[in-house]
Amino acid sequence: MLNINDLEIRQKNYKLKSYIRYFMIFIILIIISIFAVFLFNYNSVSTVDTNTNILKNKESSLTQDTKIKKQETAEHSNIIKKEITIDKPQEEVIITKEEKLKLFPSLDFIRKIQSSTLNYYEDNTNIQKSVTKKEISIEKKKTIISEASEEKKVVEKPILPIETKNIINIKRKNSNDDIGHVITRFKVNNNPALSLFIAKKYYQLKEYENAYNYALITNEINNNIEASWIIFAKSLVKLKKKDMAIKTLKRYINYSHSSQAKLLLNEILTGKFK
């Protein structure tokens, strides 16, 4: 005897059971895929970083042409322009290396060995031009250079831009941070040469109050340093204390008969130095 209602219920349960099996498989697959994606992402973080670096380098390479044009027009005119032109080939070398990925050996050790010569940048524009082409490898650069110079230079030339970078870095560090560093050193050893250096730097930076203070400090340590008196007087003039500057210089001239102090006094009195 058929019990249709019971059969329908049992059939629904059976169907549900069969769907649960597929559902479980589906869930397991999703978990596995999520885990796989997570692992993939985790492993590819480094590759993503390199890709972003490449993109950045590509962006910088887009501005490369304009920079090089500036470089060509400048033609060794001043140091700042040289620094700019130096930076470009340096970046270019890095770009070509990253685009070639790990096929080329690192030349860092050569950079350390080689000594820098600024003449190279002044003389050889061929390297800078060759660097602007992305796809040219280091080997190609070497051959271009070898056409212009001897074999010994071939090794040196592609490396030189990197060495000059260190020089650039040093120049860029001549800032307030560096003064602060000198101040800390001065606080340690109380050397009047350092305080005088600080006073001069502050004067250059047009921070005349600081320049006045450090000139005064230098004077207190050693009142026979001519430069400290000069900076002291100049700072007073800049701080609109011209009378005090004149008075101080006159005293110092009476004491030391300094010719530089006399010249400065004349300039202040005549109004040449303001």
């Binding site: 058929l2 249709i4 059969l7 329908e8 049992r10 059939q11 059976y14 169907k15």
Partner: peptide, 10 residues
């Protein structure tokens, strides 16, 4: 298919 499965269950 439902009735086929019901028959199979029965």
């Amino acid at each position: 298919n439902k009735i086929i499965e019901m028959s199979a269950i029965h």
